[in-house]
Design a protein around this nucleic acid. Sequence first.
DNA 1: TAAAGAAATGAACTATAATTCATTTCATGT
DNA 2: ACATGAAATGAATTATAGTTCATTTCTTTA
Lengths: 207, 207
Amino acid sequence: MAYRHTERVQEQLQDKRDRILQAVRAVVAEVGFRGAQVATVAEAAGVATGTVYRHFPSKGELFAEALALNAGHELAVLAAVARSEGTAMDRLADAVRVFALRAVRARRLAWAMIAEPAEPEVDAARLASRRAFADVFEGLITDGIAAGDFPPQNARLAAAGLIGALTEGLIGPLAQDADHQPDAAALARDVTAFCLQAVSARPYKES
Amino acid sequence: MAYRHTERVQEQLQDKRDRILQAVRAVVAEVGFRGAQVATVAEAAGVATGTVYRHFPSKGELFAEALALNAGHELAVLAAVARSEGTAMDRLADAVRVFALRAVRARRLAWAMIAEPAEPEVDAARLASRRAFADVFEGLITDGIAAGDFPPQNARLAAAGLIGALTEGLIGPLAQDADHQPDAAALARDVTAFCLQAVSARPYKES
DNA sequence: TAAAGAAATGAACTATAATTCATTTCATGT
DNA sequence: ACATGAAATGAATTATAGTTCATTTCTTTA
């Protein structure tokens, strides 16, 4: 026996895998799924095209894993906010605000992660993470209804509505012509106001 | 001179053009832009593939024109509702309801028309029609604010938010798992309630 | 009905981008 | 140092789908 995997090699492999996943993120943030080719990702990761296929079975699975990874981070952030102290109203306001601020900070990436169709595997992964996001909002809305903060309503649908409003207002095509929205913070504030008003049925002022 | 275009031929040509456009609509309603190939459209229209290119310069322009045509119809319907008698509140409620009912009736088509990315020409055409839709909603919201029906708010953004909420609630991927929504009418009602509450800041009951 | 011009056809061509694989480079243990 | 096996490489291959164009079919007019 003249060769065996050593720990160092394992680390290098893991490292290369991670770098490829990060490269997907970077490339997608730049050109979206539409323009993201395996060759471009490979170059961004500093490896040859073929190497990508030693770590991932196909473009679809690679991109799906990259999306899941990224969505996982975002979800953790959102869930932490949703779990914090305060009334349901306050927590929902914070959650929406955090979502909004993070989305405007990286619009292209956010759009790709939330809405841009891609390979079937990617779409499937997105559906799962979308559900997770919606669940966080739905939980907050349900809490708010129970506490009397919000009027009775279809919480599941309202959660979907919030995501739709956030998507459309912040990162969708209509949000691209930023003539009217020079200021990301102002945009986030107005979107938050819309969302809070939508579920609370009260004109919303930032606290 | 031994040949000249006669009126009958002109009509046949126009007719074939129209049939191809209709075929795009039918195919897209079935499989979305993703799955819609020129060969499939040609077959659906009952012509050869090459014939499509005698009427349209490229797939992108063909599909863009088909989208614009369809969006034009929908916009006319919506604008008529928006122009009718009644308070801004009532007209907005009607507009949202009409949008919702028509969208759920043909989800796949609606999603393609509203959200599904495709060739650049198609995306451009969609952006234009989206603006037109948003303008209708924005006008109603502005009217409502002026009339004191709605609290002051960013009408442009609220209009985008409505479209987002409608899209997400009715036809987006989360709306696909219809386990919770056996009834299209109920879905449309709840989405309408969400939208009205969002802009009016009042729990909304159908009149 | 024959000639002429236009339209339709669909198989062949082309462009793009994912995937493969023969070859090369690199790590390991004797 | 060298033999061995794994990993990386990137040019070649493959797959898909849009587009072209030589040929055929159809319309019109003399």
